[in-house]
Amino acid sequence: MSTAKSPLYIGNHTTSSKGYTRMARQMIANGGNTFAFFTRNPRGGRAKEIDPEDVRKFLELTEEYKFGKIVAHAPYTLNACAAKENIREFARETMADDLKRMEWTPGNYYNFHPGSHVGQGAEAGVRMIAEMLNEVLTEDQTTTVLLETMSGKGTEMGRNFEELRQILDLVEKKDKMGICLDTCHVWDGGYDIVNDFDGVLEEFDRIIGLEKLKAIHLNDSLNDLGSHKDRHARIGEGRIGLEALVRVIRYPRLEGIPFILETPNDDEGWAAEIRTLREAYEK
Rank of each mutant, 00 (worst) to 15 (best):
T3K: 14
K5I: 13
Y9R: 06
I10K: 03
N12F: 15
T14K: 04
S16Y: 12
K18H: 14
M23T: 11
Q26L: 15
M27D: 10
N30Q: 15
G32W: 07
T34E: 08
F38K: 02
T39V: 13
A47K: 14
K48H: 13
I50V: 13
P52F: 05
P52I: 07
E53Q: 14
R56T: 12
R56F: 12
R56P: 00
F58S: 03
L59H: 05
L61P: 01
E64H: 08
K66C: 06
K66Y: 04
I70Q: 05
I70Y: 07
V71R: 00
H73I: 07
P75W: 04
L78Q: 09
K84H: 11
E85P: 00
R88P: 03
F90T: 13
E93D: 14
M95H: 04
A96E: 15
D97I: 09
L99G: 05
R101T: 05
T105R: 12
P106A: 02
N111G: 00
G115A: 07
G119S: 05
G121D: 11
A122K: 15
E123T: 08
A124W: 13
N134V: 07
E135M: 12
V136D: 05
V136W: 08
L137T: 07
T138G: 12
T142G: 11
T142E: 11
T143K: 05
T143W: 09
L146S: 03
E148G: 08
T155Q: 12
M157E: 08
N160Q: 11
E163W: 00
L170V: 09
V171W: 01
T183I: 04
W187A: 00
I193H: 02
I193E: 05
I193T: 01
F197P: 02
V200W: 01
E202R: 12
E203H: 10
I208Y: 03
G209H: 06
K212P: 08
A215N: 03
I216Y: 07
L218H: 08
L218N: 08
N223P: 03
G226P: 03
H228W: 03
D230G: 00
H232R: 02
A233K: 09
E237A: 13
E237M: 12
I240N: 07
E243K: 14
V248H: 09
R250Y: 11
L254E: 11
L254V: 01
E255H: 13
P258E: 02
P258L: 01
F259N: 00
T263A: 03
T263P: 02
D266A: 04
D267F: 06
D267W: 07
G269T: 05
A271N: 11
A272N: 06
E273M: 02
E279S: 12
Y281P: 07
K283V: 14
